[in-house]
Design a protein around this nucleic acid. Sequence first.
DNA 1: TCAAAAGTGTTATCCTTACACCCATGT
DNA 2: ACATGGGTGTAAGGATAACACTTTTGA
Lengths: 339, 339
Amino acid sequence: MNAVQRLPLPGEPYRTNAVEISLNAAVLSIDHDAPCFLTVPRQNDVKNGIALPSGPFVPSDHMTLDNGLRSWVLEQTGVELGYLEQLYTFGDQPLPNLPGHNDKHIISLGYMALTRAKPDDAAEGRHWLGAYDFLPWEDWRDGKPEILAQQIEPHLRDGLTSGSYQTNAGEHRGERLERLRIAFGLDGAAWDEERVLERYELLQDAGLLADPNGGSPVAPARKGALSLTAAAMSFAHRRILASALGRLRAKIKYRPVLFELMAGEFTLFELQRTVEAILGSRLHKQNFRRLVESGGLVDPTTDIRTHTGGRPAKLFRFRREVLLERPAPGVRVRAGLAA
Amino acid sequence: MNAVQRLPLPGEPYRTNAVEISLNAAVLSIDHDAPCFLTVPRQNDVKNGIALPSGPFVPSDHMTLDNGLRSWVLEQTGVELGYLEQLYTFGDQPLPNLPGHNDKHIISLGYMALTRAKPDDAAEGRHWLGAYDFLPWEDWRDGKPEILAQQIEPHLRDGLTSGSYQTNAGEHRGERLERLRIAFGLDGAAWDEERVLERYELLQDAGLLADPNGGSPVAPARKGALSLTAAAMSFAHRRILASALGRLRAKIKYRPVLFELMAGEFTLFELQRTVEAILGSRLHKQNFRRLVESGGLVDPTTDIRTHTGGRPAKLFRFRREVLLERPAPGVRVRAGLAA
DNA sequence: TCAAAAGTGTTATCCTTACACCCATGT
DNA sequence: ACATGGGTGTAAGGATAACACTTTTGA
């Protein structure tokens, strides 16, 4: 084995390896106790659908990938992003059925951004949609979602035994079953709220998701496709949304990114509702308060919020010093904190 | 604000946004209680240096990004990768001083792979180098590394007060100091072993790292550049190495990736030494054993290892069932488990 | 007055941490 | 014999989870 790195020669035309980078942002916020994401109308489609703010990386215009993304979001939605985090780079296959684009290989870079929705958003044409309208199986705040037991679980098991799904790169049936068990908490395994992307991809592979662009290259839409209230967004963008939600669910536990979604001052209950919205599960009130207060994550202010629906509440703010004190400051919600 | 997505028109030549993807792998293993990574000789350099296995993504040859990377690693080192994980996508600036390549914008995709070194590697031209030869400040197993107190900390503080570093995008001095404190555990803050990439980038920004390619576009190499035993690898590749180590340190705590680095059967002490090598710190023996055994991560076998240097040890193997039982199975080493 | 949320207090339990101590082997 | 690693037991302290209960507002 001659371990010599092969680099393209200087004379070699580099267009052979040329690809285009597509920058895509899942801009998240919390609105009325629901995780929302920013959308733009998508016109290049069969139907009139929606999309995440996105655009190509233009090396000559954009200093960095991050900057490129920020400028697309600004241009398309008017939102100037604060917290921004790269998620994953998907090497999408060229879309086979988009005429005139067959030769273009697009690499999709997904980002998660965190902001706060503003009151004038709708008036100024900024549209937020609920993440759980697109991923309804992820919201367990009112108990196990019906769509899971009634539609998803039976179809997944069906697909596995009847063999109508496409085996991925020679994956054994047993391995597939184990992945399903872990991802969806079947057969007594625990539901791990962080595995949002895994669940999304398994559903897509199983053909349970309808693609507004008309058919997936991987698996044909089955008759059993889930009926979602809102499905007019491409696979690629829904996958990025799923990545973002999963990342956020994981990250709030060990980094104080939660406060990017909060106003400067907030009540502990508002904070709890935000965490619950993100995790898609209910938390135990008293213990949550203790956790947050004793964890040094917040500082009380002298301000009071009235009209809470009950007794007026003390307002708190994020306590930055915690960054220096603790290695992994976050809302350390473990499984047992469930209400 | 007209929120309409701008896509390139079908007729528009897509070469304007064309970039090349460079796939780069930090292939990690543990050898003699040291975290090692696989290298290839690099010949396109001023000096004869080394590099991570890497190559361009060729859309026509490679089905997916992952496959592209796997095939480059196989071609360049003969290693067939198992566990593979994407790290981060860096939008490198075009190198200003590589003649003939000025117009090529390269996006670097970093990967982490986990394997086990084999006895015949050296004989077959596969070279493993110690990660801590490149990141010596990360190894605290024999106490705080001298390079930190003697070279790094004074230089970082110097650079901050004398103002000889380049401020990043209008970053305030105070913010910079806070980042340094958090990353390097200055002024009583705890050393967070996971912040490997942050530390690497701060050192590079401060001009403390020498680039074998001759000068960084960001900061000129200062006279105070650290003297490392091995520095003949590019900034880009060292950054990927740092990302990989940081990711691995974080990941072993909540996913059983550790066992990708172990033989099928192992003693608990070998497992501990591996964790210590990765984290760069010592752990408490008895508690580590309890943690691992009671955590259901391993199963005892009937086999015994002799010649351990002491009493013969029971051999264990990874217990796969843990994946179904616990949402985040890993070696949950907290700060307090230090020896 | 009552619902809803704020807020306090108190347990039992488990996990973590830090000890002390004995066992079996190779040199 | 003794160094080295293997392996067990246990007790203190802290964090967690599950209680019960009082307070203060708006409708």
